[in-house]
Design a protein around this nucleic acid. Structure first.
Length: 327
DNA sequence: GTCATTTGACCTTT
DNA sequence: AAAGGTCAAATGAC
């Protein structure tokens, strides 16, 4: 089980401006710490309960006359969600982060850009300051370098259309790479403010292998309905490998529907917006926190019923990432 | 004319 | 300072 210590868990970078230390934690932050710790403990319990539940077969249950632990799980999930909600309320009320930044970072960003540490927030803040200087002195204004962690990585032996419209904005030869890396942004960046970008790098010649790394989320409404293979398929060139790189802190939004995750079909794959997919389950969690300050029992019941043990691990990852963000 | 891509320069991060 | 990421003018395709 991963243990995260708030405020002390992050290595203090020498470059990092010194902020308030442990003995200077304001009440709001202390309360946040307590809330998050509570939530984490409950998430841990949830995992243990689920693991226990899984270990007992239905037959055994019948023999022992034991009942499902689901109601207990539900309760735990509800408490976890309460903790999230309380923390987010505290987050919103804290003045520790600039109002501008709070306004620019939505709750969804908190969950999506889960490696955004305070250090990063500060660097973003600095970037904002610098940019305000640039806007008056440098004609090349609006320059913004990606500061978020990759959200999804996909290795594929074929070039596939992922359902979004991308616009190439650059390419670069990188160190230790034999091929150019191409940079794409969502074509709706300007008209809809969509911040999604991706990088495509050919990593192998024979058989051809491409690594596509996605950053950010699509906020545009341009989703097409199918994944289109751009290159002719050969029997040998059929594998599509999706990976959550373990080095990534965030294993969050998957730009592909779950129905594609396990797909190795040699044909066009229909994109199915499955409301029971893990991705959407997590989205549901986010929505809970986004829209409801008070956790609805029906919602938590729904969430609990949707969670498999694997998904509760994902749930915990999201939770841990939020700790990372706050800590 | 409009829009996408190319490409060198510029900027940030490490 | 090097490497990686982004911008925007130039260019091409339609």
């Amino acid at each position: 089980m991963v243990s995260v210590s708030l405020f002390g868990g992050h290595k203090m970078n020498s470059v990092m401006p010194r902020r308030k230390m442990e003995n200077e934690i304001p009440n709001g932050k202390r309360a946040m710490e307590e809330e998050l710790n509570r939530g984490r403990d409950m998430a841990n319990q949830l995992l243990e309960v689920l693991a226990y539940d899984k270990s007992i077969t239905h037959l055994q249950k019948e023999e022992e006359g034991s009942k499902s632990v689901l109601p207990f799980v539900e309760d735990l999930v509800r408490k976890v969600l309460c903790s999230f909600t309380n923390t987010l309320l505290l987050l919103n009320s804290t003045n520790d982060v600039s109002h501008e930044l709070v306004a620019s970072i939505t709750l969804r960003d908190v969950f999506s850009s889960t490696t955004t540490s305070p250090k990063k927030l500060e660097s973003v803040d600095e970037t904002c300051k610098n940019r305000s200087i640039l806007t008056t002195q440098n004609p090349r204004r609006g320059y913004k370098r990606k500061s978020i962690a990759p959200s999804w990585e996909k290795d594929s032996s074929i070039l596939v259309e992922d359902g979004y419209v991308w616009r190439k904005y650059g390419q670069k030869m990188t160190l230790n790479a034999k091929y150019l890396r191409s940079y794409y942004r969502c074509t709706h960046k300007n008209d809809q403010g969509c911040q999604a970008i991706k990088q495509v790098q050919r990593i192998q010649d024979v058989p051809p292998l491409y690594r596509t790394t996605y950053y950010g989320h699509h906020t545009c409404k341009s989703r097409m309905n199918s994944e289109i293979v751009l290159e002719p398929l050969s029997p040998s060139a059929s594998s599509t490998l999706l990976s959550f790189n373990s080095s990534f802190h965030c294993k969050q939004e998957n730009p592909f529907p779950s129905s594609l995750l396990a797909s190795t079909k040699h044909e066009l794959v229909e994109v199915i917006h499955d409301e029971h997919s893990p991705q959407n389950q997590l989205s549901s969690l986010e929505d809970l926190l986004l829209h409801d300050c008070e956790v609805d029992c029906d919602y938590s019941r729904r969430v609990a019923s949707m969670l498999s043990s694997a998904e509760s691990v994902e749930f915990e990852n999201v939770f841990m990432s939020s700790l990372d963000f706050v800590g």
